[in-house]
Nucleic acid binder design. Structure first.
Lengths: 371, 371
DNA sequence: ATAGAAACAATCAACTTCGTTCATCAAGCT
DNA sequence: AGCTTGATGAACGAAGTTGATTGTTTCTAT
């Protein structure tokens, strides 16, 4: 997931350019996590296509070479040397660990609010393969953002180092899907109650008659919370606590190792007479679905599934019932909170927990809801 | 590995493409459990049909220029609140435990939002002397309110009986300054982080040089949380844990019993060499102030005080530094949340914790802040 | 004016992805 | 059984992409 397509990168680049009127090579390289050489090549290409004009240090919108009779010695000025970061007053810096999973929806929410309230958004990418949260935070600050919306890499509870970087940047910030370990740390955040999400899923399966519900977890920040919800639900609803729980390693999708993990999980379920499972991450649920079919079983008949995340659950061959975090609303709310800070709205710091919904589709064996 | 029809696979591929704006060959191959060659063939076919644009590494929508990463978000199924009560009637029922302390500010916030959004507010009173939460909830419902904002009597964590009454009334509700004990209870609330408030106060006194901070608590729902904050702060900041803590009984103002409690507290402080205290409830802080003066002592010189609640702290003879919960904003937010529900805004249930502020005045001995 | 810093273009090696070709396999038909 | 068809996986050389390096140009501060 680390890399995006060239076209995606250039698209983002252009978007940024149109939003600010100017982009800088070094900045873009940082943000996208590629070398300056690559950015230069992108700029060259886009310039050849007439989509922008290269100038020293970066690129600007149109061709403007001939106007400006004055300041002939300053032709390259427009890319806004960091002295005047483009209208930095109301620019929100957004730090996300993935440009392709989960966070696009969050971003959409942020965008909407920003647009409505007349603010701009710039994105800094970080990810598991190459975590560089602190670096990106500093970059965003240097580029003159007024505040930061941060969904960091790493665990649900921010490491002190990252938190320090945010504190030190001297700008308001709002965490998204992350929170500090110390409850007394004065900061704002918006998180989804994944624990509740897992609980909802188990409860639903329970209501469909299952008294054993397996759990498949992948190694992500969310896993521990999902497990908590599952555990609590199992206890509270009187289910069999011996149902299989697998902590799958993060694998290259489709690797034989992955296949083995799916098989082990299925075997575990069969052995224990378990006919229902909560599977963390849509992708794994989809893979599991295929593995099931490959072995001559079907969902929901042989194994009722509920996926966690609802990114692409609807697209599975058997549409997956899924726990759906309110990603878009989360983005909206975080943006609102940050903008409130920036606009000196005297609003008290808030910590918000949002509840996910359960979206009933086919894979759990219940009657499907309309919608 | 599997037997998926070609058409099926391509259909899924397209849906994924539309959902995320871009797909990668390698990723798809792994997800579908086929070789990259197969995916390439798929892409070629679909590209020939003009359904997507192939690019190196994968495919994007259409012809770049118009690829939109932020596509439709969630299915956005309106949760359809059970047959919306008397459509159009938008009366909010407000349940508060006091019409004179703390809640007037909250009410002001509720009123403002209600007015702005064209709703009415009716109030039901309950209180410590005559708790009748359940009764009042039923009353409010009978009188036809569309939803309830509830700050109940009793402990911070709602008793099951009260919660049941709210659930049973069949209308949306939002708790204010209260929350259910069960974290899985699906309900919305807005609370103030009084623990943080107490922590802030102790921390401030610590920064003024006090290494012993006494605590005066009255028997209210907030007391236990304030104590928690005090305890955590004492531990975290390395203060003397032996400083006096008094759990005062709720007394008639000015009674001799009250006076005895204040005296006991002051004596305790004197005996332990404690020169700073956090006093829960403005009223008690003010009384304490008078008692101090009656005994020839002054604040902050002899005893630095921080009051908790900031209702009338500013009006004391020595203006009291106080922890100030964002009461008005709390009311506003709760009202917004309830109205969102009523208006079938498909908004995810939220749980909000608001952070109180510390307002520096004279009684703590620090330089006073403006504002 | 000049030294030093920053930005640049060109180039290369490592790597990924591409398209083609070929062998395999299953299903349907003769 | 034998043949055909279509889908697929594997292999391989070709082509595209990228990070690093290098030498040059441009800018800035002294």
């Amino acid at each position: 997931m680390a890399d995006m397509l060239v076209e995606q990168r250039q698209e983002l680049l252009l978007r940024e350019l149109h939003a600010t009127g100017a982009v800088r090579v070094a900045e873009l390289a940082q943000r996208f996590g590629v070398s300056t050489g690559t950015i230069r090549r992108d700029l060259q290409e886009l310039a050849d296509l007439g989509r922008l004009t290269k100038v020293r240090g970066g690129a600007i919108l149109l061709d403007r070479a001939s106007s400006r009779p004055d300041t002939a010695d300053e032709p390259a000025a427009p890319p806004a040397p960091e002295a005047a970061p483009p209208a930095g007053d109301r620019t929100l810096g957004l730090l996300v660990p993935s440009a392709t999973y989960y966070y696009p929806r969050v971003l959409a929410g942020v965008r909407e609010v920003a647009a409505r309230r007349g603010a701009r958004v710039v994105i800094g990418l970080t990810n598991v393969d190459r975590p560089r949260d602190v670096r990106q935070i500093e970059e965003l600050c240097d580029s003159g953002v007024a505040g930061i919306l941060a969904a960091t890499t790493g665990p649900h509870h921010l490491p002190e180092e990252t938190l320090a970087a945010l504190r030190d940047c001297g700008r308001p910030y709002v965490l998204m899907e992350r929170q500090p370990l110390d409850p007394y740390e004065p900061c704002q955040y918006v998180i989804t109650d994944h624990r509740q999400g897992a609980f909802l899923a188990v409860k639903h399966l329970r209501s469909l008659g299952h008294d054993r519900v397996a759990l498949y977890l992948t190694d992500t920040p969310t896993a521990s919370v999902v497990r908590e919800g599952w555990t609590d639900a199992v206890r509270a609803l009187g289910l069999d606590p011996a149902a299989p729980v697998i902590d799958a390693e993060r694998t290259a999708l489709g690797s034989s190792h992955a296949a083995r993990q799916y098989d082990a999980f299925i075997d575990g379920c069969l052995a224990g007479g378990v006919r229902a499972a909560l599977v963390h991450s849509d992708h794994d649920a989809i893979e599991l679905l295929q593995r099931l079919r490959a072995r001559g079983m079907r969902s929901p008949e042989d194994l009722a599934l509920i996926a966690y995340d609802d990114e692409i659950a609807a697209l599975a061959e058997v549409p997956l019932t899924a726990v759906s975090p309110p990603k878009r609303q989360l983005g909206e709310l975080a943006a609102e909170m940050l903008l409130d800070q920036l606009d000196a709205h005297p609003s008290a710091p808030r910590r918000v927990t949002m509840q996910p919904r359960l979206i009933i589709r086919r894979s759990c064996g219940a009657k499907e809801e309309s919608g």
